Simulated assay, not measured.
Amino acid sequence: MKLSELKSYLDQLLNVSHFHDYCPNGLQVEGRNEIYTVITGVTASLNLLQAAVAANADLILVHHGYFWRGENECVVGMKRHRIALLIENNINLLAYHLPLDAHSVLGNNAQLGCQLDFIESGRFGEQNIAMLGHLSRDITLEELGVKIERVLSRTPLIIGDKAGLIRRIAWCTGAAESYFNEAIRLNVDVFITGEISERNVHVSRECGVGLISAGHHATERYGVKALGEHIAQKFGITHQFIDEDNPI
């Protein structure tokens, strides 16, 4: 299919124009016009780019792309090497950040909820990205941690009373601990995100609300993979998701 057709479809599907983001969403580096093979991954790292070259991919689709607000705008060093590899091999780079977090079916939060059998009951936070929900039955904080470890293949950091029962859950993938205080005001029993800071350990303990750091990368694998599978099925293109190990 044509690059312009795929880009237009994804921009509309993810409602890109609705979001105020920290980076450009959509086509970040332009390559060849015909798209037959797509590689997806969480971050457009050099390793992912090299894997795409080896796979003779036409397009790379990621959650974490380039040109973030506040970064050095000069195309030098690491940025130059990455972009040069894309241009030399005529490979397109598409990146979707907050729009991919928020999509009601294919988004990172929706997909993480599916993986962990959460039943969504609402949204909250800036641009309604974070999710509220519950499990089909009450379990302890420790049992929830065991479930997360089994599903994500990563041991989570658990703050709080591990024997406490979990009824109401809030979650937001990646680096979303800024939503923790709002989650507390919404009377949840636990907030799950990708990574946390020292200060929120004290907030968790003093407010009596559980806090789980399940991994930035680990919580954000599922949205871009689901998106790749979706376009492969819809348009008949080849798709491969590459999960580059990242302990954070």
Rank of each mutant, 00 (worst) to 15 (best):
W171N: 02
A57S: 13
A44F: 01
D117F: 05
L3T: 01
G236M: 07
E142V: 04
V42F: 02
L3E: 06
K147M: 15
N128D: 14
V53A: 08
G65Y: 04
H202E: 12
H18N: 08
L211D: 00
T140V: 10
Q50D: 09
V29G: 03
H230L: 07
V29C: 09
G145P: 03
K2G: 11
L144E: 01
Y9P: 02
N128H: 09
E177G: 00
N25K: 01
P247E: 11
R123A: 11
I87K: 12
N90G: 05
A110E: 09
V105K: 13
T173L: 06
N90F: 06
G122D: 12
S136V: 07
N246Y: 12
S136P: 06
R82I: 07
L112I: 11
Q115H: 14
A54F: 05
L152R: 04
E220Y: 02
A183C: 10
N89Y: 09
A102F: 05
I139T: 09
A54D: 12
F180I: 05
R69G: 01
V38I: 14
Y222Q: 07
H202S: 12
E142N: 13
I248A: 10
V203K: 06
S136K: 14
K225L: 03
I184W: 00
Y179F: 12
C74H: 13
D11W: 01
H217W: 11
G145F: 03
E206A: 08
I184L: 07
F124L: 02
S17M: 10
N200Q: 14
I158V: 11
F180Q: 00
Q115V: 11
H134Q: 15
A130N: 07
N90V: 05
Y36P: 03
R80I: 05
L144Q: 06
I158F: 03
Y96L: 03
L135D: 07
E229N: 13
L49W: 06
G194A: 06
H103E: 14
I231N: 02
S4R: 12
E88K: 15
C114S: 15
E34G: 08
L116T: 04
N56E: 14
V201E: 05
E206N: 13
K225F: 05
G210E: 02
G164N: 10
G122R: 08
K79H: 03
E73L: 15
E229A: 11
E126M: 08
E73G: 15
D11V: 08
E30V: 11
L106H: 08
Q28E: 08
G122I: 10
E198G: 06
H81L: 13
A226R: 04
E142Q: 14
G65D: 04
G194N: 03
